[in-house]
Write a protein that binds this DNA or RNA. Structure first.
Length: 631
RNA sequence: GCCACCCUAGCUCAGCUGGUAGAGCAGCUCACUCGUAAUGAGCAGGUCGUCGGUUCGAAUCCGACGGGUGGCUCCA
């Protein structure tokens, strides 16, 4: 056997991984939960028959997490079956930090039932039942699970036609179809917690039965579990819906309608700052701003094809005189009409139309979520129309622009995906797809950007690059999308006159950098926990006189800052200074300008920085500069 | 849309098994004029999401509707 450090040992054939671990040391044996033989994860009970490399997996190994989660899922399923003997188990995989098990049980399990299930799980863990792997042929397994009434397992088995021998895992009287590996016994589970229940369709298909899904988590140590629970709490504290209310940024009112955002003054200012920067950078890069209506005739959406392939996401038509109109779910048809307003020459290209266009999409009520998923939102949209020769350069510029724009907001980590042609339904020629896809990849490679390929993940009308940003809690959010469109230029018969005088079809690229302004503000809120950088803060500074005697002076300071473009407030109320500061801290205002008797007599300002405390005393100009620098 | 759960004052929440509502914060008024995260007192504020049913009686039980939350992709 070859050990991870390269050394070799002799063992008898047929020894189990567990026995081998024991031979290597009692400490290792105790921590061991699985093994990796020839780079393949196996149970500790695995019998080693021939020469191979072996690594004993312990609680601390990265591979351990999945095994721990998976075994905990089995224990949970067992507990549920004990409490609800008629329950049928479906699937129960490990996720990154959690597991779930989908179970068909009547009546559905409620959140209140979780403690009872946890209690039962503890019994199973305490009993330390050995977990045993058994192999059987697929047909044996089908019979076995059919006997036990486990119809979902039978269905799964019927689907995996390419495997003849399957494995099942048994602990006590509980048996589950599973690839494994698993912990050697239930007692090896150390720290778990059930988190939530939810409905989930069998196989994720809404035509199928809704099962009860129970989420839980499990860790090698209580500390690791607590750390994870703390992370969940931290994420909860940053919930943009809560911060949005606390900081008076926006609201979604049921009388206005679900998924429709009311932007309050402070929220609107944030949007405006983002949008102004967006406009400035687009103008600098040769984009032309356009503005288009919120509704358009049915005819337009017929030409574009949206009434065919996108109708379920559109609000119903409204009648105006003798025509039907639809609220726009996208801006592209309008931009195309602008393009088509006259004959275009190759000399005009590339044309880049940019619009902060507000669109409306009918999203299922159940998927709406704060600012992240809404029914009315503003896309930071642009359409690039160019010749084939210009393609590579334009794509490269787009990627570069997108990333540099996102960096403005402090995002530095990106996950980038190229989605290629779907297997079945697609429009445009394979050759066009190949050219475009190659262009996308080439741009990323030239810019030295790592990316993953989502094979077949493109829309039917073209390949795309998606950029996801990583926030402060390492969660990733999709923002940028750069999509080719082979469909619309065709449908709208877009053309330009080429150098040789012939009419040619241009390439068209849709793209949004932030995705939607609503969603992006939501992401920024969760990323920053509401502590916006000074340049984005809706209120950058608040002037806080200590007593009424400083009111006039405070007002002068306030006006001074205001005239110089600082977003500043004045708190002249009869509160103690402690309370004024507390309020400003809670409102997450970056600078507090405190004015007492001393400041008035020396013509200065005492500056306090949010979360940091007092910075000292400064002149008005120095104070202004501090805010302007915004550190 | 579907499944589960939730909806009481502007916000966060109490209100046991049915006997017609309560706190803290915010708001308003008054007093206080205070040096870096909560000064005190008083006042006001709710047809308990809406509609219907059961009942002598409903915030509480039942139903429908509206709204919200979690979830519905990650292979046994």
């Amino acid at each position: 056997m070859t050990l991870p450090d390269g050394s070799k040992i002799e063992v008898e054939s047929g020894i189990t991984a567990s026995e081998l671990a024991k031979g290597l040391g009692e400490g290792l044996f105790k921590k061991a939960i699985a093994a990796k033989i020839n780079n393949q994860l196996v149970d500790l009970s695995f019998k080693i028959e021939k020469d191979s490399s072996i690594k004993i997996i312990t609680y601390n190994d990265p591979e351990a997490q999945e095994i721990i989660l998976h075994t905990t899922a089995h224990v949970m399923a067992q507990a549920v079956k004990r409490l609800y003997p008629d329950a049928k188990i479906a699937i129960g995989p490990a996720l990154e930090k959690r597991f779930y098990y989908d179970i068909d049980v009547e009546p559905p399990i409620k959140e209140d039932d979780l403690p009872r299930i946890e209690e039962e799980m503890r019994k199973i863990i305490k009993a330390d039942h050995p977990i045993e792997r058994v192999e059987m042929t697929r047909s044996e397994a089908i019979e076995f699970f059919a006997d036990r009434g486990e119809i979902y397992k039978v269905e799964i088995l019927n689907d995996i036609v390419d495997t003849e021998v399957v494995s099942i895992y048994r602990q006590d009287d509980f048996v589950d179809l599973c690839r494994g590996p698993h912990l050697p016994s239930t007692g090896k589970i150390r720290a778990f917690k059930l988190l939530s229940v939810a409905g989930a369709y069998w196989r994720g298909d809404s035509r199928n039965k809704m099962l009860t899904r129970i989420y839980g988590t499990s860790f090698p140590t209580r500390e690791a579990l607590n750390k994870y629970l703390k992370f969940l709490e931290e994420a909860k504290k940053r919930d943009h819906r809560v911060l949005g209310r606390q900081l008076e940024l926006f609201d979604i009112n049921e009388n206005v309608g679900p998924g429709l955002v009311l932007w309050f003054p402070k929220g609107t200012i944030i949007r405006k700052i983002i949008e102004d920067l967006w406009i400035k950078e687009h103008l600098e890069r040769g984009y032309q701003l356009v503005q288009t209506p919120h509704i358009g005739k049915a005819r337009l959406w017929e030409i574009s094809g949206h009434l065919g392939f996108y109708r379920e996401s559109m609000f119903d038509a409204m009648k105006v005189e003798n025509d039907e109109y639809y609220v726009k779910p996208m801006n592209c048809p309008f931009h195309i009409m602008i393009y088509k307003s006259k004959t275009r020459s190759y000399r005009d290209l590339p044309i880049k139309y940019a619009e902060l266009g507000t669109v409306y999409r009918y999203e299922l009520s159940g998927v709406l979520h704060g600012l992240m998923r809404v029914r009315g939102f503003t896309q930071d949209d642009a359409h690039i129309i160019c010749t084939p020769e210009q393609l590579d350069e334009e794509i490269e510029k787009l990627v570069e622009f997108s990333i540099s724009f996102l960096r403005n907001f402090g995002f530095e980590n990106f996950d980038i995906y190229v989605s290629t042609r779907p297997e079945e339904k697609f429009t445009g020629s394979i050759q066009m797809w190949d050219v475009a896809t190659y262009s996308l990849k080439k741009a990323l490679e030239k810019l030295n950007i790592d990316y993953s390929i989502d094979e077949g993940g493109g829309a039917f009308y073209g390949p795309k690059i998606d950029i996801k940003i990583r926030d402060a809690l390492e969660r990733s959010w999709q923002c940028t999308t750069i999509q080719f469109d082979f469909n619309l230029p065709e449908r709208f018969d877009m053309s330009y006159i080429a150098e040789d005088g012939t009419k040619k079809r241009p390439y068209m690229i849709h793209r949004a950098i932030l995705g939607s302004i609503e969603r992006f503000v939501g992401i920024l809120l969760e990323h920053s926990a509401g502590d916006f950088p000074v340049w984005l803060a809706p209120v950058q500074a608040v002037v806080l006189p200590i007593t009424d005697k400083q009111a006039d002076y405070a007002c002068e300071v306030f006006n001074y800052m205001k005239e110089r473009g600082i977003r500043v407030e004045l708190n002249n109320r009869s509160q103690t200074i402690g309370q004024k500061i507390r309020e400003a801290e809670l409102q997450k205002i970056p600078f507090m300008l405190i004015i007492g008797e001393k400041e008035v007599s020396t013509n200065r300002v005492s500056v306090r920085r949010r979360k940091k405390g007092s910075l000292g005393v400064f002149t008005w100009e120095e104070t202004f500069n501090l805010i302007k620098e915004g550190k």
